[in-house]
Design a protein around this nucleic acid. Structure first.
Lengths: 110, 110
DNA sequence: CTGCCGCTATGCAAAAAAGCCATAACGGAG
DNA sequence: CTCCGTTATGGCTTTTTTGCATAGCGGCAG
């Protein structure tokens, strides 16, 4: 028996950003490619792509700059706005899980 | 733009108890009927029924005592174990949402 | 002693959502 | 001017969720 918790940002009652999308952006930053990033965090390219699409449309910010063609097909990188947003989100999420876990243990175990 | 949070208890990686199920049990306690309870929290009887089924099976506790037939068809009421569990859960959840919201405001708005 | 009523119980179909496969376009390098 | 790995999407498939339909129950009114 264990506690689970989840946090996300909504805009107009629709999910716009959460932990999974955070990891996706971080992986894009590392690899310079949506495709590689998706592989790393174990989701399909299709899913990564629609994550980005909804994020950008709901937040109203361009997050990922993409280019296509060239020696190795193309690639993607984060915009400054994306990095800024990511940073804020990380600060917010930091330690939240631990607070929840601690409470759970306190009440249910001893 | 707003933060949302969700907490639930899992057993064997499967959801066993959360906010919705908490409301359901509370409503059953108030109304003495699964059917009425479901109406109050705006879910179908079918759904309420399967909530209870999975809760009981995963927690391994009898939560809702039911009887059928009689003048007004039948009814349901909570077991002592259910009340006990509910109480613990409420203590745990109490204020958690507020902590999350506060953090969000602090980082994103000011 | 029989029919009625509101409840529990559950199978099964329909709808919705999520996931995935296939295919097009792109453009620098060899 | 072909090849390669990427972005970009349409739509099909699979899974999950929802809810409709129907059966059984048993006091009580008549």
């Amino acid at each position: 028996m264990e506690i689970r918790s989840k946090f996300w940002i909504e805009i107009d009652q629709e999910p716009a950003f959460g932990r999974g999308r955070r990891f996706l952006l971080e992986a894009i930053d590392t690899h310079g490619s949506i495709n590689q990033a998706a592989k790393e965090i174990n989701i399909s390219y299709r899913k990564a792509w629609s994550y980005i699409k909804t994020m950008e449309s709901r937040l109203g910010i361009k997050l990922v700059e993409r280019y296509v063609g060239g020696r190795n097909g193309g690639g993607a990188f984060l915009t400054d706005e994306a990095r800024e947003f990511l940073e804020k989100y990380k600060i917010m999420e930091e330690g939240l899980r631990e607070i929840v876990d601690e409470r759970f243990r306190h009440v249910f175990h001893r």
